[in-house]
Design a protein around this nucleic acid. Sequence first.
DNA 1: TCAACAGCGCTTGTATGCAAGAAAAACCGT
DNA 2: ACGGTTTTTCTTGCATACAAGCGCTGTTGA
Lengths: 217, 217
Amino acid sequence: MSHAQRLRQRIEDEIVSGELALGSRLDENQLAARFGVSRTPIREALLQLAATGLVQTKPRRGAIVSAPEPHLLLAMFEAMAEIEAACGRLAARRLVPEDAEALQAALAGCTAAMAEADTESYYAENYVFHTVVYRASRNAFLADQALSLHRRLAPYRRLQLRVRQRLPQSLAEHEAIVAAIVAGNEAGAAEALRSHVIVQGDRFTDLVAGLRASNAA
Amino acid sequence: MSHAQRLRQRIEDEIVSGELALGSRLDENQLAARFGVSRTPIREALLQLAATGLVQTKPRRGAIVSAPEPHLLLAMFEAMAEIEAACGRLAARRLVPEDAEALQAALAGCTAAMAEADTESYYAENYVFHTVVYRASRNAFLADQALSLHRRLAPYRRLQLRVRQRLPQSLAEHEAIVAAIVAGNEAGAAEALRSHVIVQGDRFTDLVAGLRASNAA
DNA sequence: TCAACAGCGCTTGTATGCAAGAAAAACCGT
DNA sequence: ACGGTTTTTCTTGCATACAAGCGCTGTTGA
């Protein structure tokens, strides 16, 4: 793989994991020096990230890590909810034993992390769980889109899980999702995933509050 | 706007409109000579198109216009159907008079093009119609995703409309979609759009047949 | 005659150099 | 002293130069 591709992954990981703060500036010279390459592959990496929406570029003013306005963020979560609902619907219709086992295993992972009250670990298991649902849709393109959007929203999801009592609720919702998919209940699976992902009411308030706190830091 | 951005749009348009055939090679030197710029902005444009999936790049082997396998193409249409269904659901829930008027106007445009049996014109009006539905979802992000995917599938949609008797059927489906949205029937609007967009049964056969014909040419 | 290998050429990938534009700092006038 | 303007500097955006793979072709051997 080329330098540019490696750098793209590396920078993407740093954004998703939160090492690079939202809104922070991505200086080409600085990144080039840090990774020991010239500006060219850095530029190529940043342009690709810009095309996927993870960073924003203003002409002649460089790139910053995307920090969408709350209303757009809400729209992104709504879109995520719809896409995950679609994955759930398809998964419920097409479930094969292999995917059923994967779902149960992912659910068990979440349960274990929850039992230890380990937020970081739950965060990781939650990621696995959703990935399994995407794959169970047996639609490679939709699964890809879902995963890409999931990663893009990862920094905010991390904020959300900090809210007290969100973990047990999240786990209960996961159980309902698996139950619906395994039962072949298309509408139920879609609705369970939609309401699991969507951000509204108290959760929206929590999210915005978390954003402000993280911006202030 | 920068050269690279202009070139990206230009090349994207040529792909979407079919001027650049599916699978054709995109030689950097050739494009640079054609547009009178150096390879640098061409590369940047191609990389951005690669990130959105419109072109594929193999390391050390340049870029070609994406020509997905039939099974992936089918998955893309399925994903498109789900996303459009989501737009329709949200539109039915949120419809404002302004969007209602836009929908009726777009429908009238389709009817007019249909009356003149002008495939090219219907193709254009069809694009407008779907765009209006996306916007009526009042979710800027989802609308963006939908539009981007729509453009990516444009070359294949063009093939589809060539099938005899597809135009009147398409128009009838548009009417049902508008009726459901205006009536505030969320489930109905979603289902109408899903079945309008999805490719299955005879339509899948037609699509694959069209692909083969266009590849042979 | 066919297959395999080596050399060559062409293309991509990266580095560097240069110009234009925007932010920041300094200077001048009031 | 403060506001506006100018200049300076720093960054991006493009061009050019260079290096490194991969494919192709020509040749050679069986």
